[in-house]
Simulated assay, not measured.
Amino acid sequence: MADSSSYLVCNTCGTQHPTPDRATLTTCFICDDPRQYTPPAGQSFTTLSALRAAGDRRNDFRPFPGEDDGAAAANPRFTTIVTTPQFAIGQRAVLIRTPRGNVLWDCVTYLDDETAQRLDALGGIQAMVISHPHFYSAHLEWAERFGCKVYLAAEDKRWLARRSEEKQVFLEEIETRIEVAGEDTGVRVVKLGGHFPGSLVLLYEGRLFTADTLIMTPAGRSNWSVDALGNPRERPKGVNTFSFLWSIPNMIPLSADEILRMWKILRNYDFRAAHGLFPGWDIEDEKIKARVLESMQIQIRAMGHGEHPLLKESL
């Protein structure tokens, strides 16, 4: 059996395929799906061993800002992990440190000894949760290195390039409590669907980790607190915070009914902050749940559904 570091990795989406044979793998089935894309230069592959040998990449660890002490204070419970220079989609993973063990939310493809050693120093990884197939990346490399399980939506099994009966756990329920050695970590995984049938979000200590199940918009991350002269102001009416898309890169929206179905699940949970798929896509706001509903209603009106039932929803 070939060393998995020689398995082909898609340069566009970062998915690791279980073969080193370039003659038999000429396209990536993830990128052939209408929710993804192939770049103008066409399909291409690399390997983890080639990425490591090049020596020009590393994984940066960036603590979340502190909640009360300003941007300079680190919050040790949450750490962004992102590959630089960017590889493939460029998403971040987030290490969530709980009293019962560390949970990794989403995954990046690149894994080297330095990354593993830094994570070992933080207590390792006791469980992984991947939001959807575009971020499956090289999750089995990570799971095997840290000896942990990976939680994935059962609905999205068909998008797995690599499979492991030992490491992969498929979630059937709407909500799953993540446990480590039989003890509840406090992490909740909620299946909203939309982008993919099994698209997941994660909740921990009042924080909603959205990946791209909910896409944080530039307006959502804007600072509307003051005007150009420093005078206090309020957020403008009708400005969204999130978009709800079936295909993010190809900008194909979800249907109004699917957005309503997602809301009927999410409305049962409380949260005061949201964290998206890229570094810096973070919003701390006690009213963030209301902003999710407002964004859904803005999108549905813009799609021409002036009488849709979601427009009658309120908190």
Rank of each mutant, 00 (worst) to 15 (best):
W246Q: 12
T213H: 02
N268H: 12
R221Y: 01
R235C: 01
N240Y: 07
W246P: 04
R235E: 10
P218Y: 06
L254I: 09
N250C: 11
N223D: 15
G276F: 01
K237Y: 10
F278N: 09
S243L: 06
G276Q: 01
L245F: 10
T217A: 05
A274D: 01
S255Y: 11
S225Q: 11
M216T: 14
W263S: 04
K237Q: 14
V239I: 14
D270K: 13
P232D: 07
W224P: 05
A256G: 04
M262H: 03
N240H: 13
D227M: 09
H275D: 14
S243F: 05
P232R: 07
T213Y: 01
W281V: 09
A211H: 03
D212L: 02
P232M: 03
E284D: 15
S247K: 06
G280S: 01
W281D: 10
G238W: 00
D270I: 04
L229T: 11
F242Q: 00
G276Y: 00
R221L: 15
N223Y: 07
N223E: 10
W224Y: 15
A274I: 06
N268C: 06
P236N: 05
L254A: 09
P218R: 11
N250T: 09
N223P: 07
F209N: 03
A274C: 09
I215L: 15
G230M: 04
H275N: 15
A219N: 15
M216L: 15
A228Y: 13
T241R: 02
L277F: 12
L229D: 15
W246G: 06
F244D: 03
D270N: 13
T241E: 00
A228K: 15
R221N: 10
L266M: 03
I252G: 05
T217S: 13
D227A: 09
L266Q: 00
A211C: 10
I248E: 10
H275L: 13
N231H: 11
F271C: 00
P279W: 09
E258A: 14
M262Y: 06
